[in-house]
């Protein structure tokens, strides 16, 4: 798994360069998220465009990543494949995170 990060005026964008976040990589994902997000902007957008598959361990790792940001920062999710979005919807995690169809949508909404 590898993550890259860049910062815009209003947010830190962390991109996942992997086609799945599953049980085999959940711990590594959580740890890399901690490193990438450290000291970044208050709003973090996780770009999931390349992620085609997520299981409940991967979902748990994203929840853990959000918690470890602390209460003064937020984690939004962008670029969800229909299947990834379905997992969020079934577990009602779509009520916890803001989900955006594309990274562009996520960044545009910051201007609102």
């Amino acid at each position: 798994m590898s993550l890259t990060s860049k910062t815009t005026d209003s947010a830190q964008i962390i991109t996942v360069h992997c086609d799945r976040i599953d049980a085999a990589m959940a711990i590594q994902f959580k740890e890399e998220m901690r490193q990438e997000a450290e000291g970044g902007a208050a709003r973090v957008v996780l770009d999931l465009t390349r992620v085609e598959f997520i299981d409940s361990s991967g979902l748990g790792a994203i929840v853990a990543a959000m918690k470890q940001l602390g209460s003064d920062r937020r984690l939004d999710l962008a670029g969800l494949h229909p299947f990834v979005e379905k997992v969020f919807r079934l577990t009602r995690m779509d009520t916890v995170f803001k989900l955006y169809p594309t990274l562009g949508d996520a960044l545009a909404s910051a201007a609102d």
């Binding site: 409940s56 361990s57 979902l59 748990g60 790792a61 929840v63 853990a64 959000m66 918690k67 209460s71 997992v87 079934l90 577990t91 009602r92 995690m93 009520t95 916890v96």
Partner: peptide, 23 residues
Amino acid sequence: PSALGSSRDELPEGGFGWFLIHE
């Protein structure tokens, strides 16, 4: 399914596996 709890700290990080299988 795992309850989502009332605060961010209470959000579950697991316990969704069998729920998803049943669904």
